[in-house]
Write a protein that binds this DNA or RNA. Structure first.
Length: 483
DNA sequence: TTTTGAGTTGTTCGA
DNA sequence: GTCGAACAACTCAAA
């Protein structure tokens, strides 16, 4: 008798607990992926993620074929699809790996309850988090709202994690249920400017994820602390989209990184490795927050921010989205996002701060844009991080912390290599002016062959003015809260 | 229960 | 040019 293996955000064969458990039963396995437009919730998959998902599913399908089985694609309401699959195959078991987003978790619970009534064995596993969100709590049993104690608590729970290898064979059922053609889903949106270029930057799938992890572990992780902040240098892991789709799991990353650190110089853990692991735990922290505060994507964690008077500024928003704000580091970031579906983390903070504090546009507007354009768009990370920058989230930035785009640019892109790559029209400006063309003298601009307002926009807002305006408005919010 | 110490990523100003 | 203080309390987590 076959076991249904329901793939979700776990598009890999290694360290996939549901798969391992299903194979261990010694019976055939029927792997299925369901595209559910009915129960997608309000955060249905964004455009860039659609492209990735297509690649990831097609990689998974061939990996499964290589192990003697076939991935079945189904469309429809998850309840109906699963019901039909069970009756079609006669299966009495269905296994899957849990998701933790509010709407997905709700779906899980309903499905388990419904199937139990019918005498079906429905089991779910954790393959996407180091710890269950309910496993980590303060001494009072409350969810953590501050990162550092969360990080300490998680570390105290253990140094390493058990991982499972991919099964060599996945026993196939005698008869496969009918399957859609993946192509027919039309996941990569035609006409979207991304689709043509995303493949220049990325290869979805478990094999590519493993390769990236290996590359990162063998070299880059040891310089991570210094290089992670330099967007012109390839110093980050770039694992985020792979991790989001579950092509690699956090336990595998954790173990790999720790093992290579030990092999290299024993204890104590190098600071760079420590720093990278803490980023993995930031992801964990975001999931923890989303699980305990399910409104995180739409409601400010600090309630007084519900009253914040955000600006309605379609012109500013469009300039931000298109990368034509007149602030080079901001424009470079937004263009990198558009061209590659990804943006360097340091620059994410800069552009987010610009949207929120310089333009005073609601953080949720930025959250929506990132959701649609990032290949690593992740509900937990995205909402927790936007709230963090806006100052309304957990452990958030103090209100007076306003990034100065020119200063950030000089600090983290001192040679201007990042800006020159993405904003080539100002590439000929000397290093001292590349982050602030507005400060250039006419002779400098002439030398570089630029006319501001023609070849490159004038700043859409004066940062010094904008900073004061933001500080005033944030201060007023506090006054309102006090009075 | 109360107290204590601490909290991802910054900027500006003035000495 | 460098350095420390101010920006502002407030909430969290643990002792």
């Amino acid at each position: 008798m076959t076991t249904i293996l329901w793939f979700r955000r776990d598009l890999r064969l290694s360290d996939n607990l549901a798969l391992t458990a299903a194979v261990a039963l010694g019976h055939p396995v029927t792997p299925v992926y369901i595209s559910d437009n009915v129960n997608a919730g309000e955060w249905s998959i964004g455009s860039a993620s659609r492209w990735w998902l297509h690649g990831s599913l097609s990689a998974l399908a061939s990996d499964i074929e290589a192990r003697g089985n076939r991935l079945i694609f189904k469309t429809g309401s998850t309840f109906a699809v699963i019901d039909k699959l069970l009756s079609e195959t006669g299966a009495k078991r269905i296994y899957w790996n849990r998701r933790y987003e509010p709407s997905a978790a709700k779906l899980d619970a309903e499905i388990i309850a419904g199937l139990k009534r019918k005498g079906i064995e429905a089991r779910s596993f954790n393959s996407s988090l180091l710890r269950e969100p309910w496993e980590v709590a303060t001494q009072k049993g409350a969810p953590y709202k501050v990162f550092t104690p969360f990080w300490k608590a998680l570390r105290e729970l253990g140094e390493s994690y058990k991982t499972k290898p991919a099964p060599i064979r996945i026993p196939a059922p005698k008869i496969y249920p009918k399957s859609d053609e993946l192509q027919s889903w039309g996941l990569p949106l035609r006409g979207a400017d991304w689709s043509g270029r995303l493949s220049d930057s990325w290869t979805p799938g478990e094999a590519a994820a493993r390769l990236r992890l290996t590359d990162f572990i063998t070299a880059a992780v040891f310089d991570y602390k210094d290089k992670r902040n330099i967007p012109g240098v390839d110093g980050t892991s770039r694992l985020s989209p792979h991790l989001h789709f579950g092509e690699v799991g956090p336990r595998q990353i954790w173990n790999g990184v720790v093992k290579s650190a030990i092999a290299c110089n024993g204890s104590p853990m190098p600071r760079s490795v420590e720093s990278y692991l803490s980023e993995i735990v930031w992801r964990e922290f975001s999931y923890h927050l989303l699980f305990h505060f399910p409104k995180l994507p739409s409601k400010p964690l600090r309630e007084e921010f519900s009253f914040f008077p955000w600006e309605d500024d379609p012109v500013g928003l469009s300039a931000w989205q298109r990368g034509s704000t007149g602030y080079p580091i901001v424009d470079a970031g937004m263009r990198q996002l558009w061209a590659t579906g990804w943006m360097h983390n340091r620059v994410r903070m800069i552009v987010a701060s610009f949207l929120i504090k310089d333009l005073l546009i609601d953080w949720r507007t930025g959250e929506d844009w990132f959701w649609d354009t990032l290949v690593d768009a992740d509900l937990a990370n995205n909402s927790a991080s936007w709230q963090w920058v806006a100052g309304c989230g957990a452990d958030a930035v103090p209100y007076f912390r306003v990034f100065n785009p020119a200063t950030q640019g000089s600090k983290f892109d001192p040679d201007g290599s990042y800006v020159r790559k993405w904003v080539p029209e100002i590439a000929k400006l000397p290093d001292r002016l590349i982050q602030a063309p507005i400060a250039a003298k006419p002779v400098d601009l002439a030398d570089a062959g630029i006319k501001l307002g023609r070849d490159y926009p004038m700043p859409i807002v004066d940062h010094a003015m904008a900073r004061h305006r933001a500080l005033e408005r944030y201060k007023r919010l506090k006054v309102r809260q006090d009075g």
